[in-house]
Amino acid sequence: MIRGEEREGWGSLVYSPQGSGIVGIAGIAKFLLLGLSDDPELQPLLFGLFLSMYLVTMLGNLLIILAFISDSHLHTPMYFFLSNLSLTDISISTTTVPKMLVNLQTHSKSITYAGCLAQVAFFSLFACLESLLLTVMAYDRLVAICHPLHYLVIMSPHTCGLLVLASFFTSFLTSQLHYLMMSQLTFCAEVEIPHFFCDLSQLLKLACSDTSINNILILFIGTIFGGVPLSGVLYSYSRIISSILRVSSSGRNYKAFSTCGSHLAIVCLFYGTGLGVYLSSAVSSSPRKGAMASVMYAVVTPMLNPIIYSLRNKDIKSALWRITHRIA
C-alpha cells in the first residue's frame, strides 16, 4: 500500500476505511508495465530488436499501400483488401510497440491509466478488424475462383467499400464495449502488469472488483470474432479447393493455388499465433511467458504479413519495381 508521501506520483488515490489499498476508477494515475525482462543488460538488446521489427513492419506495409495507390493495375478488390490489412497491421504495431520503446529508452515502466485503457480499446479494435478482413479476403478469393464470370459484379467497388466499413464499425463497437467495461473496474493501488502492453486478460486478473461479466464478455467476443471468422475462412477454402480439384487444367490450378497461398499463409500465421497466446496463458503459470508469446501475435505477425505477400506476389513486386524505377 502506498504511504501518504508517495501519493503524488499516483494522483489522488481513494483508500478504503480498512486500509486495503483499493482505489476507485478515478484514483489511479498510472500503471506499471513490467515488460519482457527485468535484466538491465537486456534492455538495449530488446530496444534494438523491437525498433528493427517496428521499422520493418512500417516499411513493408507502407510499401504495399503505396503500390496499391500508385499502380492502377492493383486497383482490384484483392489488393484493396490487402491495403486495408496493411493499414491494420501498422495500427496494431503502433498501438503497442512505440510505448514499449519509450519505456525501454527512458528506463521507465509507467503508463497512464487513460493510456492503458486506450491501448486496450485500440488493440481490441485492430485485432478484431484484422480477423474480419481476413474473412472478407477469403470470401473474395471464393468468388474469384468459384464464380469468375460474376466476380466483377459481385465484388463491385461499392460492395468492397461496404464490407470494409462494416468490418471497421463492428470492430469499433466491440472495442468500445471493452473500454466501457474496463473503465468501470476498480484496481489495487500499485498495479503491476507483467506484460509489454496493457493486455486485457492481465488487467482483469489485477482488478479488485468483480470481473465475471467481463470474463463472459471476453469469451463471447472471442467466440464471435475468433470462431465465426475462422469458420468462414475454412468454409471458403473448402469450396475453393473443391472447385480447383474439379478443373483439369494444371495451369489454372497453379494460378489459383498461387493467388490463395499468400492469404492462407497469413490466416495460419494470425490464428496460429493467436491460439498459441491463448494456450500459453492457459497452460503456463508464468505471465512473462504469455507476454513473450504475445510478441508473435502483436509484433511479429504484422511484420511478416507484407513480406509473405511481396515474396509470393508477382503483381506487387512488379508494382514496387515500377515505383523504384520512376524514382530512380
Rank of each mutant, 00 (worst) to 15 (best):
S284Q: 11
I216P: 01
S248A: 13
L230R: 00
Y297K: 04
N215T: 10
H158W: 14
K205E: 13
T259A: 14
T159I: 12
A282Q: 07
L162R: 07
A207D: 14
V191L: 15
Q176I: 05
C160L: 05
S175H: 01
S284F: 08
L185M: 04
I241A: 12
G227A: 06
F187C: 04
L269E: 08
G222R: 00
L234E: 05
L245H: 11
S285C: 12
Y237R: 04
L203N: 08
L180W: 07
G232E: 07
C208V: 09
S294M: 13
Q202E: 15
Q184Y: 03
L219E: 10
N215P: 10
C160N: 04
L217D: 00
S243H: 15
N215D: 12
L165F: 06
G232H: 03
R252C: 12
T223V: 06
V283D: 11
S171D: 05
C268I: 13
F169I: 10
S243C: 14
R288A: 08
P229Q: 00
F270C: 14
L165T: 13
S285V: 07
S236R: 03
L165S: 13
R246E: 12
M296F: 14
I218Q: 08
T259V: 15
S286H: 09
I218K: 07
E192V: 12
P229G: 00
L203D: 05
K205W: 05
S285F: 02
C260E: 01
I224C: 06
I213R: 11
I240V: 14
T186G: 09
R252S: 14
G161H: 03
C268K: 08
L230Y: 01
Y237C: 13
S183F: 02
F196G: 08
N214Q: 14
N253T: 12
A293L: 09
C268M: 09
S231R: 02
I193E: 15
Y179M: 05
F168P: 03
S280L: 07
L165M: 11
V295C: 10
G232V: 06
P157I: 09
S262P: 14
L177Q: 05
F257E: 15
V191K: 07
V233I: 14
A189M: 10
V228A: 10
S209W: 02
F270S: 13
L217Y: 09
I221D: 01
G232S: 03
G290C: 12
S258D: 15
T186P: 09
P229W: 00
V191T: 15
N214F: 00
F197T: 09
T211Y: 05
S250Q: 14
F197M: 11
R288G: 11
C188N: 15
S284N: 09
